Simulated assay, not measured.
Amino acid sequence: MGHALMENRNGLVVDAELTLATGLAEREATLAMLDRRSAKSQRITLAADKAYDVEDFVGSLRARKVRPHIAINGSVSKTGKVRKTAIDKRTTHHPGYGISLRCRKRIEEVFGWIKAQTGFAKVEVQGRPKVAAAFGFAIAAYNLVRLPRLIAGATT
């Protein structure tokens, strides 16, 4: 599985990782990428989809002093009970929470571009190191394609 950590202001990917597909791979990769980034910044928020709305993960974020801007998983069980969320009211009432939820969808543009433009819909190489290298090059290419637009927008 390919994982990417994107900064929301400019839409650039700041970290990427390739893992084996397990039930916890997405959350473990996210925490690993955050650990590599957290020393470089004082204030971090993490926007993620509702699959990350798990108490252990949210607790791990708070322990790292990362604000969890995670979509609430309000699914209903077969018995009709609404699933309990790990995101509290102090987070959802913050104005930045709604902005983060809108911006988090931009990560899908990264993966869509990679699949369409770099042929990553079906990987042509075998072996984890080669796939990781190809994924890293695809992420770098996305950032390079995005940079001229950002520079042009900054000068106008």
Rank of each mutant, 00 (worst) to 15 (best):
R37L: 13
V58A: 13
A152E: 15
K130V: 00
A21G: 01
V76F: 01
G11E: 09
A152T: 09
S75C: 05
F57N: 08
R67T: 14
N143K: 07
V58C: 11
L150F: 04
I107H: 04
K105Y: 11
D53A: 09
G59M: 02
G23V: 01
S38I: 11
G112N: 14
D56V: 02
C103Q: 14
Y52D: 10
T156G: 15
G112T: 03
R36L: 07
R83C: 01
S100I: 02
I70C: 06
A138K: 07
P129K: 08
R67F: 03
R102G: 06
D49A: 06
D88V: 07
T85A: 09
I70S: 10
S77D: 15
A63H: 08
Q117S: 12
V110K: 05
D56F: 02
A132R: 15
I70T: 08
A154F: 04
T79R: 14
K122S: 13
A152C: 01
N73K: 08
V145I: 05
I139M: 12
A63Y: 05
K115L: 00
K40Y: 11
D88M: 01
N10E: 09
A134P: 01
R43E: 10
S41V: 12
A4K: 00
N143D: 07
L24Y: 09
A51S: 13
A134T: 10
S77H: 05
T92A: 06
G136A: 14
F137L: 15
L18I: 11
E26G: 10
A116F: 00
V110P: 08
K115F: 00
V13H: 07
I139Y: 07
R36I: 01
Y97D: 11
I107R: 06
W113A: 12
D88Q: 11
